[in-house]
Simulated assay, not measured.
Amino acid sequence: MKVLVIGGSVFLGRAVVEEALARGHEVTTFNRGRSGPDVPGAEAVRGDREVRADLERLAEGRSWDLVVDTSGYVPRVVGESARALSGHAGVYAFVSSVSAVDGFPGNPAGEDPDGWPCASDAGPDDGDYGVRKAGCERAVEQGFDGAVLTVRPGVILGPGERVGRLPWWLTRISKGGRVLAPGDPEARLQLVDARDVAIFTLDAAERGTSGRFLVSGPAGGAGFGEWLELCARVTGSGAELVWVDDDFLVEQGAGAFVELPLWSVPPSTGTDNFWNVPTARAEAAGLRVRPLADTVGDTWAWLREIPEGEREFGKHGMAAEKEAAILAAWAARSA
């Protein structure tokens, strides 16, 4: 199978390329060459998806069985890609997000709902991330003359993660000492490895499957405590997890989901709905998720090769001074 990946140099896009090559597919990537190195074995075509001439040059005289778009965030830009590649590919797989579901995360996600109201030609300032992802979905559906596979992942982790959720926790716990562990250790998480999203996308495309699929780990999966214990185990740090309850953290001004990655405070933030994403339809279509221990261990193996000062956490993670102050206040209250 001939596969074109828009993006393909970092995290999920890179996982798609590596999996496609492992299956013996002929892979082309299209990107600007700025985000990361090319995957050996894939043909790299340089270009900017925001430049119409670059898209036309990419498509001229060529065709693919599958396009996987892992880097679409602006509807009008995604629409240009879909139109330029229409007639040059059989299936267009667009990687969206559960955040595109209308009403999410304030309301739970449904299996196959419409996305947030957003025009297919909306620009970069027309709504937040989830709203624009919904517009991107419409841009593909309206602009591509062929089968459309829409993958709506939940929270994605794994080697190569640049958002910084799991990498921040691994880095913090690897330093040892008393580590602020937020909320209830029994709180359930629903996480999916980027490599499993890649496998599902390629499996579905190879079978000619189209439609929308919510892709995440199993609901009621690992608890927050189990997850952080895995981080402590793989890093071998001997860190002491100090569990601080939700209300106290809110009083102390701790930030949910970002400052303390993946900590949610229901119902005020709505982020608890990330842990109740229905995946029965995707499972019926072949979704399989690896053990969380494999994801944590493989991410640490990848991360430890990167000098700490060069690790990217985006805006995720709590400052050491603030963590220490909260732990001191918690100890004083407990005493």
Score class of each variant (00 low, 15 high):
Thr299Gly: 10
Gly79Ser: 05
Lys133Glu: 11
Ser96Arg: 05
Arg162Trp: 06
Glu18Val: 02
Gly208Ala: 04
Lys322Met: 10
Arg233Ile: 01
Gln142Val: 06
Gly143His: 10
Gly177Leu: 00
Val163Met: 12
Asp125Tyr: 10
Val179Phe: 13
Asp121Trp: 13
Val140Glu: 10
Arg138Cys: 03
Leu191Arg: 08
Thr269Gly: 00
Asp102Ala: 12
Glu251Ala: 12
Arg152Asn: 15
Val77Trp: 13
Val140Asn: 13
Arg290Tyr: 08
Ala256Thr: 11
Gly238Phe: 08
Gly154Asn: 08
Phe30Thr: 07
Ile326Met: 14
Ala239Trp: 05
Asp69Gly: 03
Lys322Asn: 11
Gly225Thr: 06
Arg152Tyr: 14
Ser120His: 13
Leu166Gln: 09
Asn276Met: 01
Ala147Thr: 15
Trp169Asn: 04
Asp203Gly: 02
Gly7Asp: 09
Val179Cys: 04
Thr295His: 14
Tyr129Ser: 06
Val277Ala: 09
Ser264Gly: 09
Ser86Phe: 04
Val242Gly: 10
Ala42Asn: 09
Leu287Cys: 04
Ala187Cys: 05
Val215Asn: 04
Glu251Thr: 02
Arg290Pro: 02
Lys133Val: 03
Ala194Gly: 15
Phe11Ser: 05
Val296Ser: 14
Val163Ser: 15
Ala331Met: 02
Ala239Arg: 01
Ser334Gln: 15
Gly13Ala: 03
Asp196Asn: 01
Glu43Trp: 01
Gly208Cys: 09
Ala232Val: 03
Asp69Glu: 13
Thr28Met: 05
Ala205Cys: 09
Leu303Asp: 14
Val16Arg: 00
Phe213His: 07
Pro266Gln: 10
Val91Glu: 09
Gly255Lys: 04
Ser99Asp: 15
Arg23Gly: 03
Gln190Trp: 08
Gly36Ser: 07
Arg172Tyr: 11
Arg162Tyr: 13
Ala100Tyr: 11
Phe224Val: 08
Glu43Pro: 07
Gly115Glu: 09
Gln252His: 07
Gly87Glu: 01
Val39Ala: 07
Thr299Phe: 07
Asp184Pro: 06
Ala204Val: 01
Ala147Cys: 00
Lys322Trp: 12
Ala282Val: 03
Gly72His: 08
Ala285Tyr: 12
Pro105Glu: 10
Arg62Trp: 02
Ala194Pro: 01
Gly286Ile: 10
Val234Met: 09
Asn276Cys: 01
Ala280Val: 11
Lys133Cys: 09
Gly221Phe: 00
Thr209Trp: 07
Gly223Trp: 01
Gly309Thr: 10
Ser174Gly: 05
Asp272Val: 03
Arg311Tyr: 14
Glu111Arg: 02
Ser174Asp: 14
Gly33Pro: 03
Glu26Cys: 03
Val277Arg: 12
Gly236Cys: 04
Leu157Ser: 04
Ala320Met: 06
Gly253Met: 00
Ala147Tyr: 06
Arg76Ala: 02
Asp128Phe: 02
Gly286Phe: 02
Arg138Leu: 15
Gly123Leu: 00
Ala284Trp: 14
Trp330Asp: 05
Ile199Ala: 13
Val151Glu: 14
Glu310Met: 01
Ala320Ser: 15
Ala147Gly: 11
His316Asp: 02
Ala285Lys: 05
Glu186Val: 06
Ser99Gly: 06
Val215Asp: 04
Thr299Ser: 15
Tyr92Gln: 03
Met1Ser: 11
Gly225Phe: 06
Glu60Arg: 11
Val179Met: 09
